[in-house]
Write a protein that binds this DNA or RNA. Structure first.
Ligand SMILES: [Mn+2]
Ligand SMILES: [Mn+2]
Ligand SMILES: [Mn+2]
Ligand SMILES: [Mn+2]
Lengths: 222, 222
DNA sequence: TCACATTTTTAGGCTAGGCTAAAATATGTC
DNA sequence: GACATATTTTAGCCTAGCCTAAAAATGTGA
């Protein structure tokens, strides 16, 4: 198996599985990886044979501890590369994801750790996602909740942005929604409708899907 | 075709072809790329169909102008990455070649040009090989000759080291042979035998093959 | 509990980039 | 100019990673 395919499958499984490590369907993987469902079934069998996944036919897949380690190391490389591209090479934070999606498979452990050192051992990437120390595990969403699930009226601090398209990120930044910034949910339309959010002085309508990509600190003692 | 295969084949052809752009045999490519000869014939046909090479069966291959451009851009990325790994990330100059061999296919034009700017637009890599400006052509061995062809007794300045193994590079550095350093050919054994070279105070015997990897300025006005 | 819609896997095929063994071509020697 | 030898190409095969269409398993609701 190519490193690229292997790492992308494990990473996608990890991200879809969540902190509670619930099983992931092959169709969810297919959608996330932009490949057909039978392609996923084929790859999943190989990854299971390698001991990186557990596959229960018709049920779904789960990462083994070994698979989880590969996934976490790949995500760590991705985030360090992103931070490096922004801090050292001056690329803009909304466009580094695509570059990192390739480079995460090409940088060696030595190179990525040197990057991390040169950056001063940062603990998060340009989108607010955590960077663990070498070989450490990753706790993704400690004390965070999506803006779509956040209480109304409370002042909240933005922790991370999960949206990957540069356009979406620039749009959110234009609204004042950036990691470390403040937002308030003013009103929530019923039936999973758009949210009215306050950021700075202004009030904006925000699609519910986009609100899921915005993670805020659950308790904001601001 | 994958970018990786395409770029490595064109790069190898460029390097084996030399400044006079003489035709390259498929067996020479096979040896350089560590693949079997029939694999090269197959790839060469595809690259010729893409307009990147001209293939005359049983004779050899030559790069087209388009193929040469791809080769030069790939070599440029390789050398900028090497210099960046040494200068910014602190890797040692004898071990960056292997890293660059992978990264040269993964860094985008934007990233490599930012690296070049951050480095202060260097005109050579850690081994003394030239780095052209963006989109410029490459003149590899202007006024250089291999130590194996250099005149005896004359003080020479080392321009570049073509050897790729870290062990060989460290050995040469241990002898005092580094880009920018000085050497003198004291004696040359007949039948392409070893050379006696002077570097600093000391005198060393050097294999003729290794002497081919050392390029010196043809006229040293030192 | 059984029919039906949905999800997943299997079956079979394709391209890329390798391989070995056999056939074709080129070259050096007499 | 003919032949032996070396080089190169062709033929046929393999694995990886993708695809579509068909078959099988799942689970829903009457
Ligand atoms: Mn990736
Ligand atoms: Mn990120
Ligand atoms: Mn390469
Ligand atoms: Mn170099």
């Amino acid at each position: 198996m190519s490193q690229r395919a292997l790492q992308d499958y494990l990473k996608a499984t990890y991200k879809l599985s969540g902190d509670d490590e619930r099983p992931v369907t092959t169709s969810a993987l297919a959608e996330r990886l932009n490949v057909a469902q039978p392609s996923v079934t084929g790859m999943v069998k190989k990854l299971a044979a390698e001991g990186l996944m557990q596959h229960i036919p018709y049920q779904g897949v789960r990462l083994t501890p070994a698979g989880r380690r590969v996934a976490v190391e790949t995500i760590r490389r991705h985030r360090i590369v992103e931070q490096f591209l922004v801090q050292v090479l001056g690329l803009s934070w909304d466009e580094v994801d695509a570059e990192a999606e390739v480079l995460e498979h090409a940088v060696s452990e030595r190179v990525v750790n040197r990057m991390w050192e040169v950056l001063g051992r940062p603990d998060s990437d340009p989108h607010g996602s955590p960077i663990p120390p070498p070989h450490a595990d990753l706790q993704e969403s400690r004390d965070l909740c999506a803006l779509s699930d956040a209480p109304t009226g409370v002042l909240l601090r933005v922790a991370r942005l999960h949206e990957r398209s540069p356009e979406a990120l620039r749009y959110l930044a234009g609204l004042g929604v950036v990691p470390g910034g403040e937002v308030r949910v003013v009103e929530r339309a019923p039936f999973n409708g758009p949210l009215m959010i306050g950021a700075g002085q202004a009030l904006h309508a925000l699609d519910a899907g986009m609100a899921q990509a915005i993670w805020v600190h659950a308790e904001f003692a601001g």
